[in-house]
Design a binder for these strands. Structure first.
Lengths: 222, 222
DNA sequence: ATTTTCCAGATTGTTCAACAATTTGGTGCT
DNA sequence: AGCACCAAATTGTTGAACAATCTGGAAAAT
């Protein structure tokens, strides 16, 4: 039943087994091997992971805090499956965080951004959607990293993790990522030219459009 | 020994005992009854709270995620005691979040803000520092609430909780809060007049100054 | 007297087994 | 079909046990 977990990394660094288990599950969910809505049974999981139910519970508490799983009392935990409300929340966060980082951040690492854009174009040419998605993630991470706040970076990573869940929930949807390769490139140019206000404003526009597209696609997929 | 906990709220709604315990500890820390640096012994705490060590551990995992406590492996958990680095991080977050909310938020609840400012002035007149602090908190919460994002609100509340810890760690410091009553009032006026860009810019200035003051005060207190 | 080594006690990390509380799904009744 | 009800399964919580690690100080060495 639980073949979705596959091989387990050696439990080598088990400083805090609970944290290690959380990271394993986080990876599996990010990769899409654990699909949104999947029930994570305590008994089954603790057996396949070779840990006790109590330790697994600690991992669940962590992931619950990250909004990656949903805990329903006395019913169990499930891989979170974001709906329209969650999508709106995601973009409410991004519409604040990303333009603010562009406008006021001490300065995003332009070299890193250039490298990411190049990778994204490579991936686009090769038609590799996963690599494009990864590059896209790195672009937005680098942007937020420019604020100098590790806390905001974590918030952004949490949001991006939820985005992955959204995409996994509509895997048959058209390709969004290729669309944004060039948009990111434009933003990079504006930032490199020091036109921060314009970058921020355009970013807000992009985010509005992306949210609308996703919501439309979601309701279309019923 | 553990008299700092005082009377316990009835364990009435113990949907998820772990979450209930986390909320109890959260309150005690916010009130300052548990001072930064205090060690939270598992055995002692589980006895006074009337819960098992395992359940207490779940609560610790939650509070660790909120950065309210610090967990040192095999050493125990302690009430977090923010230092200069944490103060800088706090203001890195606030310098992004609050001006962005002022500039782009769908609109903060002006009536709420007015009411908060009035309360703050009342408290100032009465010389009640705790009430001023509370009003100040509500001001910034209302601002972020204007973004429509519950997630950003939670981030803000986490940051404000850390601010409380900073103040508790320097309880003998001069009164910061009275200083900001009128600054908040000015911001409210700018917002009410629709001068968002100016409000955002001034807010960034205030935050810079507040950070510098806090850091100076902190190093002075050695 | 100072430093180092080492050990016993205490505390945390993890597991296990049991029981209470709650949900689920079906069974049979009306 | 609709409904009350019960049995099985799952989660929530506990207590006890043991391993791993840290602490503080006694004993030994310099």
């Amino acid at each position: 039943m639980n073949t979705a977990l596959g091989d387990l990394p050696p439990s080598a660094a088990h400083a805090h087994t609970g944290a290690w288990v959380a990271s394993v599950l986080r990876s599996r969910i990010a990769e899409g091997r654990l699909v949104p809505g999947t029930k994570l049974s305590e008994q089954s999981l603790s057996e396949t992971l070779g840990i006790s139910r109590n330790t697994l519970r600690e991992a669940f508490t962590v992931l619950d805090g990250e909004l990656i799983i949903t805990r329903i009392p006395n019913r169990g935990v499930f891989v979170a499956s974001p709906g329209p409300d969650e999508i709106r929340e995601i973009y409410n966060v991004r519409r604040i965080l990303e333009p603010a980082a562009a406008l006021w951040g001490p300065g995003p690492d332009l070299d890193e951004l250039r490298s990411v854009v190049a990778d994204a174009r490579d991936a686009l040419a090769r038609g590799s959607v996963p690599e494009m998605a990864a590059a896209n993630q790195r672009f937005h991470e680098a942007l937020i990293l420019g604020t100098g706040s590790t806390g905001l970076l974590e918030t952004m990573q949490r949001v991006l993790a939820q985005m992955r869940l959204v995409f996994h929930a509509m895997s048959n949807a058209p390709d969004f990522h290729s669309h944004y390769v060039e948009l990111n490139a434009e933003l990079l140019e504006l930032l490199a030219a020091g036109k921060r206000a314009e970058a921020a404003e355009r970013m807000r526009g992009y985010l509005d459009k992306a949210e609308a597209e996703l919501l439309a696609q979601f309701t279309a997929a019923h």
